[in-house]
Simulated assay, not measured.
Amino acid sequence: MDLRIFTEPQQGATYDDVLAVARATEDLGFDAFFRSDHYLTMGGDGLPGPTDAWTTLAGLARETSRVRLGTLVSSATFRYPGVLAIQVAQVDQMSGGRVELGLGAGWFAEEHAAYGIPFPEKRFGILTEQLEIVTGLWGTPVGERFEHHGEHYTLTDSPALPKPVQHSPLHPDRAGVPVIVGGGGPRRTPRLAARFAAEYNQAFPELDGIPGRIDQVRQACVEEGRDPDTLIQSVALVLCVGRDDAEVARRAAAIGREAQELREHGIAGTPDEAVERLRTLAQQGVQRVYLQVLDLHDLEHLQLVAEQVAPHLG
């Protein structure tokens, strides 16, 4: 099972804070460092303020060498799709081909109001067109042109440059980066994942609902004529592991949560409890877990998981 570190810098972090976690992620052997793409805190004062996701990832691309980097997830409301395609392709080049793009419809109305970003009531069509355009720009052969005439976006005579270093997992003969799609919709989101994604992510799901959602997404792949085994199944869950109950309680309090609640809904408890939860997820069909780390200054937390949890997962 892949273990990835997932952070929420909008809650209050500098670039240097994020860099320290990314370097620890790499040094400790985790698979990837991901971050949210938000501009407003969801509790607390948020000081010193948000950092832009793709600006941050560009910096990390040059200051790390192994871990994969990405967003979970960027909002389709934040950037025009042509600009997003350029940004992601450039960061992929800067990283030597280590970038992944998580893209969603956006949900946090308050951050849009706070920074003057339009927030349409209906956003699923915007997300669909963004996925069509971003993957279409990357996949257009060099020397050819890309066009798109949709309800929300029109691109005319685009040179479709620059290209990512990587090739699309769905179309190995074309340039592209792995795309991650997630969401709770029962039909439309699974179909989007089946069409465009290398990975389908369930963010903070009810644990007993995970297998049913995996089945829905796999069925959507069948309906799209795609082998369901080519779509990676992942979940994102909060992390709170301690050597004993007292350390678990201390880490839970540091992020404003209750230890028992985290044990019920996340990857929490002693290392043995965390291993048991992760093994259960693997039995349910989960191949990758994003460990949401909310206290970015507690690097010993990551070290504990790397030393006492990860080695027992096979």
Rank of each mutant, 00 (worst) to 15 (best):
Q260K: 13
A193H: 06
L40A: 13
I232R: 15
D173F: 01
L278A: 10
L131Q: 00
P48T: 12
M1D: 00
E144K: 12
I133A: 06
V238L: 13
R79K: 12
Q216K: 14
E111K: 08
Q219S: 10
V91M: 02
F30H: 09
D45S: 08
D17Y: 12
Q10P: 10
A105H: 08
A203K: 10
E276F: 02
H148D: 03
R243G: 15
E224A: 14
Q303Y: 05
G182A: 04
R68N: 02
E261Q: 07
A89L: 00
I126H: 02
D45G: 04
R23W: 08
D227E: 00
Q308A: 13
E132A: 05
L84V: 09
M1V: 05
Q303S: 13
A268F: 07
Q87D: 13
W138S: 09
V67T: 07
A175P: 01
L239E: 05
F34V: 13
A203Y: 14
F196C: 00
R79N: 07
T189Q: 12
I126L: 11
L28I: 02
T154C: 07
G139W: 01
H167Y: 13
Q90T: 15
E129P: 02
Y153E: 03
P211D: 01
Q287N: 08
F6M: 13
L72E: 06
W54D: 05
T270R: 09
R188C: 04
L69P: 04
